[in-house]
Amino acid sequence: MSATSAPDAVIEVKGLTKHFGNVEAVRGLDFVVPRGRVTGFLGPNGAGKTTTLRMLLGLVAPNAGTATVLGRRYQDLDEPVRRVGAVLEATSFHPTRRARDHLRMLAVAAGIDERRVGEVLALVGLGDAAKRRVGGFSQGMRQRLELAGALLGQPDVLILDEPSNGLDPQGIAWLRQLLRYLASQGTTVLVSSHLLAEMAQTVDDVIIIAEGRLRAEGTIAELAGQGRSAMRARTPEPDRLVQVAQAAGFAPRRVAQDTVLVGGARPETLGPLLAQQRIVIYELTNEGTDLESIFLALTAPTPGSSPPVQATAPPFTPEEPR
């Protein structure tokens, strides 16, 4: 896949490497994030996303390589809060401090007018909770408060680590709209997630990593272009459907008790096959491009590392892919 070689790179990562003891969390990672776009930073849990973002923000020191934002290391930026906003996992709040005071202490330290505190609280929908103590906040409210802190300095760049964790579906939709709005205003956004499906509607570009290495980099369209179409079939005989589809050269994958996702299939090829094999079908839908199976294939563990998984057709996965 062609690398997004942008002369206007806002974030540049070169040869970035980090090991914790014997564990190599990030190995020789290279990527760039272009200006004014929403870039998804995707990979399964433990792929090295959080470590990479923390190196980018000067919290973790790399063993080798460089990570720069706006051309400099984060710790060399003047007024970093006015240039870069970040929401990280494993960050929290003092439980007895009020939401407003949490943001005030950031504003004071960054030399930002305290009036901005009320603005960002309203922007993230916490206007009414400003005077409440953070200890009583739900996970979703904490996520919003984190985001308010990131937006305090009206930064040019936003770096978000799994921001949708803890948000309800409405919250996720709201976040998607907010990120699209900020991008339309020229903000560059780098947002990590372990769910491609959730990000597909939000991001312009994707960077996919697994086992600390870059696996793919490009636009969502480029990613979809290398993928296959897929059909979703609901049937009382999923096992037989999987057998038949496999024999015909498709990549079937059971996604629920009675549902099979058939990678590589189109209505014109799968329909006649099912009729010919007399398989009962309750429902047959065209899924278009099967982004999820591309993602699974791209992030599958390399041979030699455990656990072994078929690269093209992963087995029945009732839960979210990990």
Partner: peptide
């Protein structure tokens, strides 16, 4: 309370 991350970002 893991506020140190926020402090070091500022």
């Amino acid at each position: 309370h893991k506020v140190i991350t926020t402090t070091l970002l500022v």
